[in-house]
Design a binder for these strands. Structure first.
Lengths: 242, 242
DNA sequence: GTCTATAGTCGGATAGAC
DNA sequence: GTCTATCCGACTATAGAC
């Protein structure tokens, strides 16, 4: 009963000795292709639903290549998480730098903070439209439901960076204390407004009659949510200034 | 390659001949226990990750009972979806009746519509706090990522009912046309504000320092999101009335 | 309606040649 | 670094006794 329903990722002793600077016989290509295919497979079918055989075949690689490069299925799973974290880290770096510089500078009043939140919202929605991130969302959403080491990795490198930053901005924009629970809740409420379009994808497509969530949809979504966020922050500020 | 990554639910010829009114030897109990355990297992580990062996053992039933009652693993999966749809249907019935009556009556102005949306938000958040719905959320969120027949079932009976209703209210509250894309987007943005607490559960718990999302958390979340929704709808109304 | 025994398939991992 | 061959465990589903 308690015996272990399945062997989910724990530590993953992936060897991956050489492969960074050498590139023998297109080896690095194999590694990258495996990660790419595995990202889609794990995201769609989950850790146990996806099979290494199918992943290897689709990546034009041998099954043993997974053992060689990642030490096993779990290692491949974690490598996918690393890939996701690295990709998003790179994409949000400019935004992060800009917000951190503003916050360090000290001259961020409520209006400036509101504008920075709106900027962050716009960038995050734009990220949703990039084709790669559709698979990311599937993978991460799965991890949110039943977190493994892969979630900790992604949280630490992406969410754990962005959320506190957004939270500080929300606090400034609403004349509140970032440590207060209400500020945290408000921050998630903001994130939820656009994340729902990834996470509730199937329902959104049906209800909206969309065939996909692409650039056209992003263009429709962005101003509405920015508007909503502004209204929410201003109302909270009024409330807190009484 | 195209050979079939896995045998997901298609039609499920579940026999389930007698079992409703007869109740021989505690049979109905077995059926219910299997559904209960399967809901948790499928939600956590996905269709292929969960094993009928473990489900049967945890439900104190024989593996063959799954074959007998549901015709197979796929039948059990769909039975879980049915259970979810029926449960939520029952829970939202009073709210639905109230909103439909108000809309049919015709006397719903923008303020009344806003209050009804706030009421719906409150009820939906309260639903999140009920312990059963945690497993529901896991199951449904999985289906959102890679929908099967189970998603169609739940969408038709729950989301497809609530979303258009909410959408009409949002349109009235914001002096807009329910058919407009912006109204649909706004409706999802509202839903996203509380759904994030279920769907982004792991991130919420980490960032907020919560150990669970229970009654105390619901009490903290509800007024903040109601306030946010009101601000958003009023801002949209102002925008549309110019 | 519940159970045991077992068939048949597919999974990940290993060993070792090249 | 890539490949084949193979092991062995775990899975779902079937057949048939009770």
């Amino acid at each position: 009963m308690t015996k272990a329903a399945r062997p989910r990722p724990k530590s993953a002793s992936r060897p991956r000795k050489a492969a960074r600077g050498q590139r023998q016989g297109g080896a690095d290509g194999t590694r990258q292709r495996l990660i790419q295919v595995a990202l889609d497979a794990f995201g769609r079918q989950g850790f146990e639903g996806a099979s290494t055989r199918v992943i290897a075949r689709k990546a034009n690689a041998n099954i043993s290549a997974i053992l060689y490069h990642f030490g096993g299925k779990e290692g491949l799973y974690l490598a996918v998480a690393e890939h996701i974290a690295a990709f998003i880290e790179g994409r949000i770096a400019p935004l992060r730098a800009r917000i951190e510089a503003a916050l360090a500078g000290g001259g961020v009043d409520a209006d400036a903070a509101t504008r920075l939140v709106e900027l962050a919202v716009e960038r995050q929605i734009a990220l949703l439209a990039e084709p790669e991130t559709e698979a990311f969302a599937r993978f991460i959403t799965r991890e949110q439901q039943e977190p493994t080491a892969a979630f900790a990795l992604i949280y630490d490198r992406v969410m754990g960076v962005m959320l506190p930053m957004l939270r500080r901005l929300v606090a400034i924009a609403s004349h509140d204390d970032p440590a207060r629970e209400a500020v945290g809740i408000r921050t998630f409420a903001i994130a939820g407004q656009f994340l729902i379009f990834r996470v509730g994808r199937a329902a959104v497509l049906r209800q909206m009659g969309w065939r996909d969530i692409g650039p056209a949809q992003v263009q429709a979504i962005t101003p509405i949510i920015q508007h909503s966020v502004r209204a929410m922050l201003q109302a909270a500020r009024l409330e807190n200034s009484r």
